[in-house]
């Protein structure tokens, strides 16, 4: 048995998997496989209609829970001075409330953002400064 054959085999395996990985990276079959993170401003200005993710704060007093279906709610997401009207119809996380920092994923259509995922930030209580409860890191998300 020549070592050459094994070298070819190794190259073959690497090539096939390399192709497979890059192929899936460019054409993931599930739309939830990847989502682009944008800011509310970018969304408003560009009117993106593919699936995206956004982060921001829940505007105080903006949460409205539907009378007919308690699962459905809408609220206003604030990012700086920009505001976005969000509709969400699934189970809300424990920490979802006024002023909570949230990340939503979904589609934007005619001024309404239809979210199918809603995540809240981990409670700052456990990591932040002892006196300043709002000191938390932007990259931390509670799933």
């Amino acid at each position: 048995m020549k070592n050459k054959k094994f070298t070819l085999l190794i190259i073959g395996v690497v090539a096939v998997t390399g192709f497979w990985i890059s192929w899936v990276s460019y054409n993931p079959s599930d739309e939830k496989a990847m989502a682009t993170f944008v800011s509310v401003n970018e969304l408003m200005n560009n009117n993106i209609n593919k699936r995206i993710k956004l982060g921001g704060l829940v505007k105080d007093g903006s949460i409205v829970i539907s009378e007919t279906n308690q699962l459905e709610c809408n609220f206003i997401l604030k990012e700086g001075s920009s505001e976005l009207y969000v509709k969400y119809g699934r189970t809300r996380p424990d920490l979802f409330k006024d002023g909570a920092e949230v990340i939503v994923a979904g589609q934007y259509n005619n001024g309404v953002f239809y979210a199918d995922e809603l995540q809240t930030k981990c409670a700052s209580r456990y990591e932040g400064d002892l006196r300043n409860e709002s000191s938390y890191n932007l990259t931390e998300v509670q799933q």
Partner: peptide
């Protein structure tokens, strides 16, 4: 320059 998040379906497919 775009921020992308990769979810479980991506890993499952690969």
């Amino acid at each position: 320059g775009t921020k992308i998040t990769v979810g479980a379906p991506f890993f499952n497919q690969i």
